[in-house]
């Protein structure tokens, strides 16, 4: 077991090195430089641009720049091109904003998808199954931002839910209780919107998993020995159907960055996805690279955790 984990971690570290090299190369080889973002700025003289370029080692060869980036990243001294703030601090602050959105979104997704998927699988070809299938396809097919706009019109008019930002303006001094209630109130719509598409996909998976399990021999055995139907389905069926979702859980972690760009932009939520978007607009290479790196770490961590959990949960898997 320990050997398995160590070998896995080792492989992933090697992968990570290659990922960082490739993403560094992609970002630096693409045309467009930080100095070119604002060419009309009269205060930017050629000397200043040269000064900036020297300060950020932009004139060095690519591999030297890579070494600078890695050493700066691990010593925590990496600075943003845009405002000279430490990158890790910036990302950490945004991470704390993204986390509740991600957590609540994930909780909504999993708590909705499982009942819907199981019900659809059990009552196959019923009205419920057909409607839920149709709606999940519709939700997968609709552009997320279009749905969000439709929802904003409806929600704001009907329930008066706030849809912009993280807190009500002027409420900074309020007691903790009110502030946290205000935060949750602001979270409602963004979290629901980011959960919807995920729910649609996941409920389809749950349905097909349940369908596959239900036709297995051990379910027939359980029925044959006269167990109550609930026990057959939830004890014998669901438990076995759950296995693949351990993997899926690991794979949702990177959604923390990539999946949230659109929703954080719509709802003006200052999270990591939005930070990445702003960094791309400003050609802020250190931030883009570090975000890419962090999300690769998250992916690898997610797969590692799911590999281990899978091995723990399924006795058929050998190391």
């Amino acid at each position: 077991m320990i050997n398995f984990i160590i070998r896995n971690i080792w492989q992933r570290i090697i992968l990570l090195v290659f990922i960082s090299i490739i993403s560094h190369a992609i970002v630096h080889l693409a045309p467009g430089e930080p100095a070119l973002v604002d060419p009309s700025n009269p205060r930017m003289k050629p000397e200043d641009i040269q000064l900036i370029r020297t300060a950020f080692h932009l004139d060095e060869p690519l591999h030297i720049q890579y070494v600078y980036w890695v050493t700066d990243l691990f010593s925590g001294e990496l600075k943003s091109f845009k405002d000279n703030q430490p990158v890790l601090g910036k990302i950490w602050q945004r991470f704390l904003n993204s986390l509740p959105l991600f957590l609540i979104g994930t909780i909504i997704t999993w708590f909705l998808a499982f009942p819907v998927g199981i019900r659809a699988a059990l009552s196959r070809d019923s009205v419920f199954d057909r409607t839920s299938t149709f709606f999940s396809y519709a939700l997968i097919s609709i552009p997320g931002f279009f749905l969000s706009y439709l929802c904003i019109i409806f929600m704001v008019k009907t329930f008066d839910v706030p849809v912009i930002g993280m807190q009500t303006f002027g409420l900074e001094e309020a007691p903790l209780l009110f502030r946290s209630m205000d935060r949750i109130w602001h979270l409602t719509v963004p979290a629901m919107m980011s959960a919807l598409a995920g729910t649609a996909v996941l409920s389809r998976y749950v349905r097909s998993q349940m369908l596959e399990v239900i036709h297995q021999d051990y379910i027939r055995t359980a029925r044959a020995k006269g167990l109550p139907e609930d026990q057959v389905i939830y004890r014998h069926g669901l438990r076995n159907a759950l296995l693949p979702f351990i993997t899926m859980f690991g794979l949702t972690i990177p959604g923390l960055i990539g999946g949230s760009v659109i929703f954080e932009t719509i709802f003006a939520w200052p999270g990591m996805g939005r930070l990445g978007y702003e960094a791309i607009l400003a050609r802020d290479f250190p931030v883009i690279l570090t975000l890419n790196f962090i999300s690769a770490v998250l992916v690898l961590l997610g797969t590692l955790v799911s590999d281990i959990l899978y091995a723990v949960a399924d006795p058929r898997i050998k190391f």
């Binding site: 992968l15 992609i26 990539g258 996805g273």
Partner: peptide, 10 residues
């Protein structure tokens, strides 16, 4: 391992 949408955007 790359976050696809973020990579495309970049």
């Amino acid at each position: 391992c790359f976050p696809t949408f973020f990579l495309i955007l970049t």
